[in-house]
């Protein structure tokens, strides 16, 4: 091979480009924020199946209860007789004649106080039980026994102690919803990785700093599981408690409607209770998802 040939290959190793390189910009992936077709499709796939099921159920119910000697009213009768309750949730015609939304709000207010207290006390007690082996040995058996007591079984005692229906109902909420909060918080605290504890020991965090900066955020996913179970239980309990204590809550409304044989009203009230309970559950779940974002990822 001659020198000329070598030089040729050298030249060929770096050929001049036929045309200068041009910069081709990547088309940025623009996700359209508002895409009506996609949103409509998603809504349809979530809403259509339950809508069909509800319609089918209503039809079956209508057929089953249409005979003149049926014991329960068919949907058409509910619609006609309880139309005021369905269409006007916020009417207010005096102390005992108010819309169902008002009643639900009054019940929710009780739940807010009782459940709020349960959340605070439950997290504190759960942290104690999770943190200290002796607190766990002493308190855990007591909690395990008390948590099996049905909500309404507390009511007579609480009426005797508070001598008033409203604080008694709140106490029933509190005592019903506190157990899952305590138990889940304790599990969460017990599961805090040893490394986080070591970090706090090296930094010499005191008890309060450890509680606020490490324990609560580390156990937050567990705490919110407990809170979610707790709010469900407290909504169960408030309706039952109000049936017995009276007042203006949604629970008492059902009892009152039963006493005056207004079955359609009861059915409407049941729908209100179900929807509200569902919303409460989703609300706590959403708050939990927001607060614990990032904590579960390793």
């Amino acid at each position: 091979m001659s020198i000329q040939a070598i030089e040729d290959t050298k030249v060929k190793a770096f050929p001049t480009p036929a045309k200068p390189a041009e910069v081709i910009a990547f088309t940025a992936k623009v996700r359209r924020r508002f895409d009506p077709a996609a949103i409509a499709g998603k809504l349809a796939s979530t809403l259509v199946p339950p809508a069909i099921v509800i319609v089918v159920m209503l039809v079956i119910w209508q057929i089953a209860c249409s005979s003149p000697n049926a014991s329960l009213p068919p949907p058409s009768q509910v619609w006609n007789e309880a139309y005021d309750l369905i269409a006007h949730p916020f009417f207010d015609y005096g102390p005992q004649d108010i819309g169902l939304a008002w009643r639900v709000l009054i019940s929710l207010q009780r739940v807010a106080i009782g459940f709020g207290l349960a959340a605070i006390v439950g997290v504190a007690l759960g942290a104690l039980v999770g943190q200290s082996i002796w607190a766990m040995r002493g308190l855990d058996p007591v909690f395990q026994i008390l948590r099996t007591v049905p909500p309404l079984a507390w009511l007579p005692l609480s009426l005797a102690a508070f001598r008033d229906s409203s604080p008694s109902a709140i106490f029933v909420i509190f005592i019903t919803s506190i157990w899952p909060v305590i138990i889940n918080t304790a599990v969460g605290v017990r599961n805090i990785p040893e490394d986080y504890r070591n970090v706090s020991r090296i930094l010499r965090l005191n008890q309060l700093e450890f509680f606020v900066k490490i324990m609560v955020p580390a156990a937050a996913p567990y705490i919110f599981t407990g809170l979610r179970i707790g709010i469900g239980l407290s909504w169960l309990a408030i309706v039952a408690a109000e049936m017995l204590t009276g007042g203006v809550g949604i629970g008492f409304f059902i009892w009152d409607a039963w006493n005056s044989s207004r079955l359609p009203d009861i059915i409407v009230a049941l729908a209100y209770i179900g929807v509200t309970g569902f919303c409460l559950d989703r609300l706590v779940a959403a708050v939990g998802a927001f607060v614990t974002r990032g904590t579960t990822a390793k």
């Binding site: 070591n198 010499r204 580390a218 937050a220 614990t292 990822a297």
Partner: peptide, 19 residues
């Protein structure tokens, strides 16, 4: 005989607080 910041540890699995 107790931990303190004058003996800082870098842990094998980083131990950063994920939140």
């Amino acid at each position: 005989d107790s931990p303190g910041p004058e003996r800082a540890v870098v842990f094998q699995n980083h131990s950063l607080l994920p939140w």
